[in-house]
């Protein structure tokens, strides 16, 4: 019971922080909406997507891109969360969490889970705006996608946690964006189907195939239509477990604080 209360307290704290930082909320929404309403609108006329699962008919590019943008929201939230952990560590409030009388793995998981909850808020706001803007998304997909969003949020949050355990100063974080976030996003199926990538370049296709973010996006894509992509789920679960272990290792008490 105490553990649940602590988990709840950490979630409430992260939610409050997020909602009070209004610019962060709008920033989280504006980025994918620009991709959807400007970038995808331009491509809509030029690019249609052939019938491939989970779609049972031809779809327009803006419908295709939605799961990738949902992944983008969670990816940026995971990185924002990890940036805030570096900041918290520099400013000291991370110390308060780590010195409270609870096992370290539980405390880190609480923080990760809270970050994932914040990402759900952003994703659902984005999906709602997308749906109201006329993008053809099934309403029932809003429910069926939830487990995939939880897993993706944990995966990307844990990946961010691994990074935050290794980045010692906020100033170094710009490099993370260039060397981690952009390659993860662009070398995935978020913007183009993998078969299109393969037509363009075999080695880019192979990089995309082994990118865990591709699995996360595909998991979301299928879940939005009430389907389960087993390989993507298994790969995402494995990647989440690996990232969690690495994060625990990164945050263990060590020789140098």
């Amino acid at each position: 019971m105490t553990s649940l209360r602590i988990l709840w307290a950490v979630i409430v704290r992260e939610m409050r922080r997020f909602l009070q930082q209004r610019s962060r909320f709008f920033g989280a929404l504006v980025r994918p909406l620009i991709w959807l309403l400007v970038f995808a609108a331009g491509f809509r006329a030029a690019l249609g997507i052939a019938i491939t699962p989970p779609y049972d008919t031809y779809i327009t590019y803006d419908v295709y891109i939605v799961p990738g943008l949902v992944g983008m929201v969670q990816l940026f939230n995971g990185m924002q969360n990890s940036l805030s952990m570096v900041y918290d560590r520099e400013m000291g409030s991370m110390r308060v969490l780590l010195t409270c009388p609870q096992p370290l793995p539980f405390l880190l998981f609480s923080r990760l889970f809270a970050g994932m909850c914040v990402s759900l808020l952003q994703v659902y706001a984005f999906l709602l705006i997308a749906r109201l803007s006329g993008i053809d998304l099934p309403w029932q997909g809003f429910v069926s996608v939830l487990p995939a969003l939880v897993l993706t949020g944990l995966l990307l949050g844990a990946a961010g946690m691994v990074l935050s355990s290794q980045v010692r100063q906020i100033e170094n974080f710009a490099g993370v964006m260039n060397f981690v976030v952009f390659p993860l996003f662009f070398l995935s199926s978020a913007l183009y189907p993998l078969w299109k990538m393969q037509e363009a370049s075999e080695w880019v296709y192979q990089l995309c195939r082994f990118n865990p973010f591709t699995d996360a996006v595909e998991m979301i894509r299928f879940a939005l239509y009430g389907q389960w992509q087993q390989d993507a789920i298994v790969h995402s679960l494995l990647a989440t477990a690996v990232c969690l272990l690495l994060a625990l290792w990164g945050y263990r008490p060590r020789q140098r604080a």
Partner: peptide, 10 residues
């Protein structure tokens, strides 16, 4: 702690 550790936004 020596450093401030409060959440400024709360």
């Amino acid at each position: 702690f020596q450093q401030p550790t409060l959440d400024l936004d709360l």
